[in-house]
Design a protein around this nucleic acid. Structure first.
Length: 125
DNA sequence: ATTCTAACA
DNA sequence: TGTTAGTA
């Protein structure tokens, strides 16, 4: 099938399907004319990729996790290092959350100290 | 009509 | 990630 069909069936944009391929996540065959030719197996793989992408995982993480997924749920198979990798992802998110909280309080502080604006019609009178 | 690669007011 | 260009 062509890229347009797997796109609608997987929910991944054509743009991203090409990007993931460039990243080595999906390897569809090519027709004589150079068009990507996807198989049913590719559709299942694409659905798994979609799940991981929606979880906010990076392409690098997907490379590690995809081989450990059995169903498109995804259900993870106890591969070696799988637990460590998932824990690593959670650690990264915890780091980002901490950074964002610092940023939030900083900006909230600017907002709290902001002088009250006087309406133009009043300041001119 | 669709897809392909490359590139960015 | 979108979008556009010029093809196949």
């Amino acid at each position: 099938m062509q890229i347009g069909e797997i796109s609608q069936r997987s929910g991944i944009t054509v743009r991203m399907l090409r990007f993931y391929e460039a990243e080595g996540l999906l390897r569809p065959h090519r027709t004589d004319s150079g068009y990507r030719d996807y198989s049913e197996a590719d559709v299942e793989e694409a659905k798994r990729i979609k799940q991981l992408a929606d979880a906010g995982l990076t392409v690098e993480a997907m490379h590690d996790l995809l081989p450990c997924i059995i169903s498109p749920k995804p259900t993870f198979h106890p591969c070696d290092r799988l637990r460590a990798r998932l824990e690593g992802e959670v650690a990264k998110l915890d780091k980002r959350l901490a950074d964002m909280e610092r940023s939030r309080s900083q900006i909230a502080g600017y907002l709290a100290d902001l002088p009250v604006e006087v309406p133009a019609v009043m300041s001119q009178e």
